[in-house]
Amino acid sequence: MDINLVDFFQRNTRTIMEYTENHFTLVLSAVVISLLIWVPIGLLLTKSDKWAARIMALANTIFCIPSLSLFAIMVTIPALGLGRKSALLALVLYAMMPLIRNVYDGVKNVDRNVIEAAKGMGMSSGRIMREIQLPLGLPVIFAGFRITVVMTTGIAAIATYIGERNLGRFIQEGLVRSNTSMIIMGALIISVIAIALDTILGGIEKLVIPKGLRARR
């Protein structure tokens, strides 16, 4: 076995760049679409416990489906087929659970007494949402965003099996060709990116905690 990562990196710089770019356009569009859809729905669900339970059960069920399965199922839908549309839809469906749950929990878990007091002072429910529930729930909502980004980055790699040319492709081709350098390179790049995103977002997560709520000392 010949493992020479530096050599591999130098010879494949252009491919690596191309795959990385593809990977990120997919992740970015999936995350943006997910935020646009699931955050408003999560907020809406705080108004109805009945619907919240139903939608959350659905999201939970979708989240259980193995990613490879979900991609595969998408492909068999004629309107989607192999390629980006299937990949995007699967990723957006996965993001449903962490985003909706965290938005819902974040807003719902705000201390009842605080809301009660705000109501007592005559704040409208819209104002309470904007000025109290959203800021106080922001850390939890952001945690959902962080999970979504890191998860989507990882799962997107699997979309290589439905025709996406992204960082998962090194692993896929490495496995087919028994090229160890390729496998390790692919796995390393994507791991480093995922860990880096997780760490950076984890740092930001601490910053969005409202000042009064940060632990003292």
Partner: peptide, 18 residues
Amino acid sequence: LNILNAIPGMAVIALALP
């Protein structure tokens, strides 16, 4: 363990091979 969990499943599986 948190860092380990950020690694995509596909990468972990792939790394097991070599």
